[in-house]
């Protein structure tokens, strides 16, 4: 706890004493605010004219706050996170490698797991702060909206946190691979994109047989898709696999980072 705390505070101060935190917070707030305003404005305009989504003069589905403002907002923001989270996490281990301060961590009487956890928590706190404005927009909607779908709106917001935290774990892992921050950034972004887009491939692959056993490869890919799970949560349809998926991503990549950071000893 002591070590995790020390690493955590050091990294958090590091964020706020360098421009990183402000660039990220300002950028994300501006983008999310603008997106929110656009969606809100569109919603207001459209619901003044028609009450629902029409096809051939018939209402196919009603416009709702959850599906037509917050849902798209959450989904779009999750895509921004693919770019922003690597920016937050890229320095965590790369900088230590570059400045050779890694030697201090590796020779102190501490475990690498504690270091990874401390650093991860620091990035998580920054991301948490980053997502607070989105919560403000959400409360505005809940305050002014008539009969908003509280459950769906809230679960989507929590889903956004899960996405950010999973990407942060991936980012830490990427950072532990290299001393070059730019490479760490791109590795994280690429892994993130892969996890986002793997579900698209699911459509074109079906059931395959391997060694005369049936394997639903499409379903497997769908289950691996971060966006698929996230969409469920945003739609308010939470399956057990959805939170478990994010949890497993976080655990897997944190462990992988620990193993990786430890491996600096054998070079």
């Amino acid at each position: 706890m002591r070590v995790i705390g020390a690493i955590f505070w050091k990294e958090l101060k590091g964020y706020f004493l360098s421009p990183v935190a402000y660039v990220v917070l300002t950028g994300f707030t501006a983008i999310s605010g603008w997106l929110f305003y656009q969606l809100l404005n569109y919603f207001l305009r459209i619901t003044n004219i028609v009450s629902g989504y029409m096809v051939k003069g018939q209402i196919m589905r009603e416009w709702t706050i959850a599906d037509d403002i917050m849902g798209p907002l959450y989904k779009n923001l999750s895509l921004f996170l693919i770019i922003l989270v690597p920016g937050v996490t890229m320095r965590l281990f790369s900088e230590e490698k570059k400045l050779k301060t890694e030697e201090l961590l590796l020779t102190a009487p501490i475990r690498m797991g504690q270091v990874v956890l401390g650093k991860y928590l620091a990035s998580v706190v920054l991301l948490f702060l980053m997502l607070i404005p989105v919560g403000v927009y959400m409360s505005l909607i809940l305050y002014y909206g008539s009969e908003p779908d509280l459950g769906t709106v809230l679960s989507g917001y929590l889903g956004l946190f899960l996405v950010a935290f999973s990407l942060a774990a991936i980012g830490i892992f990427a950072s532990s691979l290299t001393e070059n921050q730019i490479i760490a950034f791109f590795v994280c972004a690429v892994i993130g994109l892969l996890f986002f887009s793997v579900g698209l491939a699911a459509r074109s692959v079906g059931v395959v047989s391997i060694f005369s056993r049936q394997l639903d490869l499409g379903e497997l890919l769908r289950q691996l898709s971060l966006f698929e799970h996230y969409s469920h949560i945003v739609a308010g349809r939470i399956q057990l696999t959805d939170p478990v998926f994010f949890l497993l991503i976080i655990i897997f990549f944190l462990f992988a980072s620990r193993i990786n950071a430890e491996s600096a000893r054998w070079s």
Partner: peptide
Amino acid sequence: PLYNEMTVRSYLGFVGRLRG
């Protein structure tokens, strides 16, 4: 192994915490 953005005091404190 020095962190450039820290002050000497906070750096030494940090290392002290790491050292137990």
